[in-house]
């Protein structure tokens, strides 16, 4: 086939016009598959005719498609994709499932993380509680030991028991002194004394009576913190009496007699 002569014959123009028989159309179709330049020529002719006929259009025809779609009851543009070929639909279904699974997994992980954090907080709280309780048990045990020791002290036969009576400043007050001469220790039970005012402390005095001379055994600095108001002091004096005065914090050189709260004499033994 002489391609150039074939093209020049004008048969391809008639082909595009649709003016040929089925037999001729088939021949051209087969020839186009064989000779790409024929197809090229047909495309050019077609392009020219598309433009020629388009120029005769009275108006834009885009809007007509809307009524075509409506008549064919096409779905909306947005959902159009889903109503296409079955493979496409399948892919999209898989996509959605995948995303849904991913979202579920993410939510699940977040939930687990949150739960884990909550549990960790709970564990830490419980640990703190446990430690606190252990401290309390230790304290109670320590208190019990103190109390037992105190009980032993009080029951001790060698212990000298002195009651200090309330004086003018605070007549309803009282105190007890348990004096263990062998260990040179005095135990003071100050439960009968009021809480000292701010900046003041009780000072404990050992007294000899003839002549009256006081010796300080020390001040009670932790009066408020001590729950059972039992205090332990050293005493190596040959005490004949004990007195308790209220003194400025830090204590005084000699007792302020106007602030003598309690006083008691050691009975002869």
């Amino acid at each position: 086939m002489d391609i150039k002569t074939y093209i020049k014959s004008g048969i391809l123009e008639l082909y595009v016009a649709g003016a040929l028989s089925d037999k001729e159309n088939r021949e051209i179709y087969d020839a186009m598959l064989k000779y790409p330049e024929l197809l090229e020529e047909v495309l050019n002719i077609e392009a020219a005719v598309v433009k020629l006929t388009a120029h005769a259009a009275p108006s834009n025809s885009k809007h007509i498609f809307t009524s075509v779609k409506k008549a064919l009851s096409f779905t909306d543009n947005d959902t159009k994709v889903t109503s296409l070929l079955p493979p496409t639909r399948k892919t999209i279904w898989f996509n959605y499932t995948g995303w849904a699974a991913a979202v579920l997994l993410a939510v699940g992980l977040l939930w687990t993380l949150n739960k884990n954090e909550a549990l960790n907080t709970k564990v830490s709280t419980i640990t703190t509680d446990k430690e606190f309780l252990e401290i309390q048990v230790k304290d109670i045990n320590s208190d019990l030991a103190d109390t037992k020791k105190l009980l032993n002290v009080i029951r001790d036969q060698n212990l000298i028991n002195i009651t200090l009576n309330g004086q003018d400043v605070y007549p309803e007050g009282y105190a007890k002194v348990y004096w263990d001469k062998s260990s040179e220790t005095v135990y003071l039970d100050l439960a009968g004394l009021p809480k000292p005012p701010e900046g003041k402390v009780y000072q404990i005095w050992s007294l000899t009576l003839n002549p009256l001379s006081p010796t300080s055994l020390g001040t009670i600095d932790d009066f408020n913190d001590n729950a059972n108001k039992i205090f332990e002091l050293q005493n190596n004096n040959a005490s004949q009496a004990f007195g308790i005065t209220l003194e400025p914090a830090g204590g005084s050189e000699s007792p302020t007699m106007e602030q003598l709260y309690t006083l008691g004499v050691v009975s002869d033994s």
Binding site: V50, T53, A54, H55, A56, S61, K62
Partner: peptide
């Protein structure tokens, strides 16, 4: 449709 409708409209 977008490729050919205007031509058809003209015809």
């Amino acid at each position: 449709y977008n490729m050919y409708s205007t031509s058809m409209h003209g015809v």
